[in-house]
Design a protein around this nucleic acid. Structure first.
Lengths: 245, 245
DNA sequence: GCGTAAAGTCTACATCGTAGACAGTTTCTA
DNA sequence: TAGAAACTGTCTACGATGTAGACTTTACGC
């Protein structure tokens, strides 16, 4: 019997190889799941397939995730752990900008996970979500409150900010889906299929659509948001009673 | 044999009733599917269940949608058809604001469809999406261009706007998931489960989280965006070369 | 009334999530 | 060190799902 090293982190643990069998652990299961999703998409993540990837019976996975949904939540959490927020920085605006770019890159690194990021919280009440999922929220709130916002205002800022951020990511990822072999803009995006009379603007914008500078676009958006946020929100309440009681 | 009325629209066609069998049609199939999703969620929409709902063999559905994914796309399209945009109005800002609220209400009317709205485009290249899905994009572009924006700028405005809008909708729907029987804020959101030391801010915000005025929040966000957009974007390019070639 | 195309049905299969009983292994305790 | 207890992994089995392909029934133009 080989020594079977104790709950070690993922590392280059032998997947697929039938011979050696590293001891399973939640970390190992989840990171293998993430790798699978990254490489082959969400649909490829079935219990059976993941079991096979780990050289184990599919049923063994249920020791580490109550069911498939929980597995998905675990993957979401794992991805969000890659996002690090340092709440003790001087300039809150610079921080928000930084976080935005970090999250964007994270999404580009794991595009197949984005649907989970966006969708899972829709079916889980706030308090029941995986803690790792809520940590960024808490940290950003903390950051804003430390910067001088009243808690209720911090929440509003957070909402506007995170809303915009998620929206941008979805936008960018949507436009990313493209046939990379084709280099004529119209074709690359499949725009040639659109009836010319009904979609003249869209078709005409083919070339512009084709070269999308996501980072710049995001940065610009954040700027707009920040300038809009910094001044008016704090002092005047446009919606009386919202933050009062 | 009853007359079996020809491809009539949905209306109150007898579902489930075993006796009468209205002729199927794509519209009937899709609207029944939508009703099912609205009432019981996305998971309830299986071919077998939908067939049963229509009093028909599940296989018959394949005459009207190539597969389940196409069915989902159809539902998405159907929902988006409820959004009407009138591109010939005077004030583009007022229009964008109006559309935002319309889309928000639409999302609240069909919360179970929102994951589709947001997720399906992530796996389909722009040009291959259902046309109904692209129509709002085209119309908003048209609106902006008519209002004097250069096409490339219109695209940027659209992106910022729609990104924010989707983000807001996701945000609002996320916070909506709540146990309505409970009226203590902490409990209603399940926040009591959170470790107090790790999530002090979030827990403290329980009451504020509990009464969320989505419309106001959205309106405020749109205002910020519009003021930010109206001035700087058109004249100075912060990212040289993005819109030029 | 007949022929052709469309609409609907039937059977069958591979694949999925997962319940429940079981066996093997590790860890704790006396 | 022996035995008990807890944990890990495996096996078998079941019901549900999407859908291919052959078939039957219905509708409709001439």
């Amino acid at each position: 019997m080989p020594p079977t090293n104790p709950p070690m982190n993922s590392s280059t643990a032998g997947e697929k190889a039938a011979g050696d069998k590293p001891r399973l652990s939640r970390d190992l299961v989840l990171s293998t799941a993430l790798a699978l999703v990254d490489e082959e998409g969400l649909d490829a993540l079935t219990m059976r397939r993941l079991g096979q990837e780990l050289g184990r019976d599919p049923m063994s996975l249920y020791r580490y995730a109550a069911n498939r949904a929980a597995l998905l939540d675990g993957v979401t959490e794992l991805v969000l752990k890659e996002l690090s927020i340092f709440p003790d920085r001087p300039d809150w605006q610079a921080q928000l900008r930084q976080i935005a770019h970090d999250l964007r890159l994270l999404a580009l690194r794991h595009p197949n996970v984005v649907p989970l990021l966006v969708t899972r919280p829709l079916s889980t009440p706030l308090g029941l979500r995986p803690l790792g999922t809520l940590r960024p929220l808490e940290q950003i709130l903390s950051l804003l409150i430390d910067a001088g916002f009243a808690p209720a205002d911090a929440l509003h800022v957070y909402r506007a900010y995170y809303g915009f951020l998620y929206g941008h990511i979805l936008n960018e990822l949507q436009e990313f889906i493209v046939d990379p072999d084709e280099n004529e803009a119209l074709l690359r995006l499949g725009l040639h299929r659109l009836p010319a009379k009904e979609f003249p603007r869209l078709r005409a914008l083919g070339p512009v659509l084709a070269d999308y500078d996501g980072a710049a676009e995001l940065d610009q958006g954040i700027s707009i948001l920040l300038t809009g946020l910094a001044a008016p929100l704090i002092h005047e309440k446009t919606t009386p009673g919202t933050a009062a009681r």
